[in-house]
Design a protein around this nucleic acid. Structure first.
Length: 572
DNA sequence: GCCGTTTTCGGCCCGACTGTTTTCAGTCG
C-alpha cells in the first residue's frame, strides 16, 4: 500500500467527519495527516508506529490507524463512518456552493446519496422544502451540477498562467492605477491549478467592475468591493482580491498559500503574541501592526528566513526557515544546457539547424539532440545506421556554431524486458543516452521496476527520461518501486529527468525531492519538438524548485565540459 | 486528534461574500 492510498483513506475520514458535524479540529487533524502522508519522502507502509509518530501532526492514535490501514487495507473507524454515511455523498461535497452542512441536510432530510439523487430532487423542486434553501440556492446547485459535467476541475499550470496573464492584461489596460499580482497555486508553481488568483494592490472598488467585464467571464460567483469571483469559459474560476498598498506583502503571503503553510505560519504568530491576516501582522497586546507592506517583513517578524513561494507547502520549510537553512533554489537562468530535444528526423517539427537556433535564442549554451529510436516506428524512430549518421551531422553542425555546443544523443526506448532498443556499441559512440519507456505501460509493479532497473544497470545509459510516465489530468504513472529505482540510479550514477512538458512534469516535485534525498542527480530538460519549444524549461525549473533543488543538484546547470564529464559514461 | 520556551488540559487561523434571514449560518479560499 503506497502513501497516496493511505492518504486517501485519511482524507475520506476527514470529509465524512465534517459531514457528521464532528469537532473541526479533529477533522483538521485527519486532513493534515493525509497531506503529510501524501507528501512523505519514504514509503510509510514500512515504518512502525513509533516512526510514524515522529511525523508532524501524527500522534499515537493516527499512527495506529495508519498501521491498521497498511496491514488490513482499511481502518475500522473508516468502515464505521462509511456505514453511517454512504461514501457517494462525498461527490456532493465537491460541488461549488455545497458544503458539509448542506450535504448532511440533503442526506438526512431527503435521503440524497448521489449526484443523480441531487439532480432529480432539485429539478422536482424538493430542495425548497428545506430550511435555508430558496429558489436562488436551487438555481446555483443546478448550475454547479452542469459545470461538474463540463469540467474536470483542475487545469495545467501553463493554462492557468495564460489565463492569469490575460486577466492581468485586461485589468492593467482598463484600470492602470493598481498593481496586479498573480498569487495562489500559480505563484507556488503547482503542476495543476484549480483556479486563478489575482491580487490587486492600491486600486479602488471600481476595478471590480472591470474584472467582471473581462471577456472570458461566463458568470459571476460573487462580487464585493474587495473580493470577487468569476467563472470563466473553459472552466476556470478566477478570484480577485483588492488590498491597500500598506497590506501588499501580507496579502501576497496570505493569498499565495498554501493553506497548510498559512495555518502553520499563523500558529507561529499566535505563539509569539501576534495575529496574522491578509492586512498585516499585528501585535495582540496593543493591536499595533508590525509588518505588512513587504512579504519579507512578515517572515522576518516571525523569526523566519524568507520562504520562496514554491516551498510553501508545510513540508518542513518552516522548520528550516527557523534555522535560516533553506536551500538556494535553482533558477531558470542557472540552466546552461538542454539535454532532451527532437528534430524532424523523427517526430520533431524543425530541422537540426532551427533547433540549434532556438536553443541559442533561449540563452542556452549547449543542446543535446535526442531523437527517438526505432521502436517508435510511428515517430520514424532512428535505427543504428541513422543515429550514427545523425551524430556525424550534429557534430559537424556544432563545429560551425559560435555560442552553442551540440551533443549527439538519442532518446532510446526501453523495451518490455528492460533491454535497449539500439545496440550497445552504437549507443557507446554517442555523447549521451536518455532511456525512456513509451510502450508496454501496463506491466505490474514488479515487472516494471525490474525493467527500469535493468536499463539503469546498462553502462551506456546516462539519464532516464520521464520515469513514471504519468500524464497530468489523463493518466496515472507506471507502477514502480521508486525507492529501489532511486537507490539504483544513485549507485550507478544515472541521472533522472525532470521533463518540462506541461502535461508531464515527470518526475514531479515530491519524487524529485525523494530522488535527490537518496543521492540521485537530476536534469531539467525540455523534450522540445520545435525551435520555439524551449520556453517550457520554466515549468520544469518550477518543479525542481518545489523539489528543493539547488543548482548543484541539477547537472545541466554545469558548463558543457563539466556536464559531459559528469555523465555516467564518462565517470570512473 | 494533536500538542506544549506559560500548559498533559484546553487550546487549536482568519475574513469576505451570499442567501435567507431579521442577526446569522454556510461556504470558500
Amino acid at each position: 500500500m503506497d502513501n497516496q492510498a493511505i492518504a486517501r483513506v485519511l482524507a475520506e475520514i476527514g470529509d465524512l467527519l465534517e459531514i457528521k458535524g464532528e469537532n473541526p479540529f479533529k477533522i483538521r487533524a485527519y486532513r493534515t495527516a493525509a497531506e503529510t502522508v501524501a507528501s512523505a519522502a519514504v514509503a510509510l507502509a514500512a515504518l512502525p508506529a513509533a516512526g510514524l509518530q515522529k511525523l508532524p501532526g501524527i500522534g499515537k492514535d493516527l499512527a495506529g490507524k495508519i498501521r491498521e490501514i497498511v496491514e488490513t487495507g482499511d481502518a475500522q473507524y473508516h468502515r464505521d463512518l462509511v456505514a453511517e454515511f454512504p461514501p457517494t455523498i462525498l461527490d456532493l461535497l465537491h460541488l461549488q456552493g455545497v458544503g458539509p452542512k448542506t450535504v448532511q441536510l440533503l442526506y438526512l432530510s431527503l435521503n440524497i446519496r448521489t449526484i443523480e439523487d441531487l439532480e432529480q430532487a432539485t429539478r422536482a423542486g424538493r430542495l425548497r422544502e428545506l430550511r435555508g434553501m430558496g429558489a436562488r440556492k436551487e438555481a446555483l446547485i443546478l448550475k454547479a451540477l452542469e459545470e461538474r459535467r463540463q469540467y474536470a476541475g483542475r487545469h495545467l499550470l501553463a493554462d492557468a498562467h495564460e489565463t492569469a496573464l490575460a486577466i492581468v492584461g485586461w485589468l492593467r489596460e482598463h484600470e492602470p492605477g493598481a498593481e496586479y499580482i498573480p498569487v495562489g497555486s500559480l505563484r507556488r508553481g503547482c503542476e495543476t491549478c484549480g483556479d486563478v488568483d489575482v491580487l490587486a494592490v492600491g486600486g479602488t472598488a471600481a476595478l471590480m467592475d472591470v474584472f467582471t467585464s473581462f471577456g472570458g467571464v461566463e458568470r459571476p460567483l460573487g462580487r464585493g468591493d474587495t473580493k470577487s469571483s468569476m467563472r470563466l469559459g473553459g472552466g476556470f474560476q478566477a478570484d480577485l482580491r483588492l488590498v491597500a498598498s500598506e497590506s501588499r506583502g501580507a496579502a501576497m503571503q496570505y493569498f499565495t498559500g498554501s493553506k497548510p503553510h498559512n495555518i502553520a505560519l499563523r500558529d507561529r504568530a499566535i505563539q509569539r503574541g501576534y495575529t496574522l491576516n491578509e492586512y498585516g501582522l499585528y501585535r495582540v497586546s496593543d493591536n499595533e501592526r508590525v509588518a505588512g507592506e513587504r512579504e519579507e517583513d512578515v517572515y522576518e517578524a516571525l523569526g523566519l528566513q524568507f520562504v520562496p513561494p514554491e516551498l510553501r507547502e508545510n513540508r518542513g520549510e518552516i522548520e528550516r526557515a527557523i534555522e535560516h537553512a533553506l536551500p538556494r533554489l535553482v533558477e531558470l537562468a542557472d540552466l546552461r544546457g538542454d539535454i532532451h530535444a527532437h528534430t524532424d528526423a523523427t517526430d520533431g517539427r524543425d530541422s537540426l539547424e532551427r533547433m540549434a537556433a532556438g536553443a541559442a535564442a533561449a540563452g542556452l549554451s549547449y543542446l543535446a539532440i535526442t531523437d527517438h529510436s526505432k521502436a517508435l516506428a510511428m515517430a520514424n524512430g532512428l535505427d543504428e545506421a541513422r543515429v550514427l549518421d545523425q551524430a556525424r551531422t550534429v557534430r559537424e553542425c556544432s563545429r560551425h556554431l559560435d555560442h552553442l555546443t551540440l551533443l549527439a544523443g538519442i532518446e532510446c526506448d526501453i523495451r518490455m524486458d528492460g533491454t535497449l532498443d539500439l545496440a550497445t556499441d552504437c549507443l557507446a559512440q554517442l555523447d549521451l543516452v536518455v532511456a525512456s519507456i513509451h510502450s508496454g505501460v501496463n506491466l505490474d509493479q514488479a515487472q516494471m521496476t525490474k525493467r527500469i532497473l535493468r536499463a539503469i544497470e546498462s553502462p551506456v545509459v546516462d539519464i532516464i527520461g520521464h520515469l513514471t510516465g504519468r500524464l497530468l489530468l489523463q493518466r496515472e504513472g507506471y507502477r514502480l518501486d521508486l525507492e529501489r529505482i532511486f537507490d539504483a540510479a544513485a549507485a550507478c550514477g544515472v541521472a533522472l529527468e525532470i521533463n518540462s512538458q506541461v502535461d508531464r512534469l515527470d518526475l514531479n516535485d515530491v519524487r524529485a525531492k525523494l530522488a535527490h534525498d537518496r543521492g540521485v542527480k537530476l536534469v531539467v530538460s525540455s523534450d522540445s519538438h520545435s525551435h520555439a519549444g524551449f520556453g517550457v524549461l520554466r515549468w520544469g525549473t518550477l518543479v525542481a524548485r518545489r523539489a528543493w533543488l539547488e543548482p548543484a543538484d541539477v547537472l545541466n546547470t554545469l558548463p558543457v565540459e563539466q556536464f559531459v564529464r559528469s555523465l555516467r559514461r564518462n565517470r570512473r
